[in-house]
């Protein structure tokens, strides 16, 4: 294409501004952090412990709730039932409500004087101020990402293939595990990555259910409140680096899987 297209120029300029808006604050934060500060913070046991806690709780939240969410997503994609629209809307509620409100709701649900709280206590699980509580709070706010992605993935599997498998004598369970699940896998994996990412970056809901043990977003907030920007920034930078490294790795692994498949 040749010739001057003013509209295109305007669009590119606007796009550049948006991109800059995202990159500039992050870049500024990185530039303001000296390598010495960075490594000192990474070696800080409180920081490392907190990052480790954040990683494993968010991962476990994704896996535990994924087991229930994936079959549920299949039902949403395939079956007709009364109030299906309402159910779909309920799934999206955690995305639209303020996360601190979500935290309050969960805390009310699992605190010691509730049925769930007592039930948990009887098997040695204490939800308030503990890792299980963090997992619940993370899952609450992040599960819509997995359910929606998995539902779209299942909906994209041609129903005819499932019918063909049934006619070929496969049980519904075999059809699910050999046809539906593998064909929707790409969407499910990307939904799981999204859920994990969302859980890991959660602050509002978690801080209310569990200030301690401290996940990294809470730790950043605490250092900011107690010591100021200069002390919070290196923790944020280290945490962002760890997150990015994991996402790049996961994306690479899942795209490698896709390539091997096709």
């Amino acid at each position: 294409m040749s010739g001057f297209d003013p509209m295109r120029l305007v669009f590119v300029l606007l796009g550049g501004l948006v991109l800059l808006f995202i990159i500039a604050p992050l870049a500024g934060m990185f530039i303001a952090t000296s390598p010495a500060e960075f490594f000192e913070t990474a070696a800080d046991r409180e920081v490392a412990g907190s990052i480790g806690l954040t990683l494993w709780t968010s991962m476990l939240a994704t896996i535990i709730f994924g087991v229930a969410a994936i079959p549920f997503a299949w039902i949403l994609a395939r079956k007709k039932f009364p109030f299906k629209k309402l159910v779909s809307a309920i799934i999206d509620v955690p995305v639209v409500i303020p996360h601190s409100a979500a935290g309050i709701a969960i805390l009310g649900f699992v605190s010691r004087d509730t049925v769930v709280g007592r039930l948990g206590e009887s098997v040695g699980l204490n939800f308030v101020g503990s890792a299980p509580g963090i997992i619940l709070a993370m899952a609450f706010v992040s599960i819509p990402f997995l359910v929606n992605a998995a539902r779209d993935g299942f909906a994209a599997v041609p129903e005819k293939l499932e019918k063909a498998a049934l006619v070929l004598g496969a049980s519904p369970a075999r059809v699910f595990f050999t046809i539906s699940l593998p064909l929707a896998w790409r969407s499910i994996v990307s939904g799981m990555i999204m859920m994990w990412a969302r859980g890991m970056s959660e602050f509002g809901a978690v801080v209310i259910v569990a200030y301690h043990p401290m996940i990294t977003p809470v730790l950043i907030y605490e250092r900011f409140g107690a010591f100021g920007l200069a002390y919070a920034r290196p923790v944020a930078v280290v945490f962002i680096c760890v997150c990015l490294a994991f996402f790049v790795l996961l994306r690479m692994l899942s795209s490698k899987y896709d390539n091997a498949e096709s």
Partner: peptide
């Protein structure tokens, strides 16, 4: 047995696995 207009083969399986699919259950 039923053959569909557009064959409805399982795209994530080889031809061999497609044909073997009903036998493996």
């Amino acid at each position: 047995g039923l053959v569909f207009q557009d064959s409805a083969l399982f795209p994530h399986m080889s031809v061999y696995r497609n044909i073997a699919y009903p036998l493996l259950s």
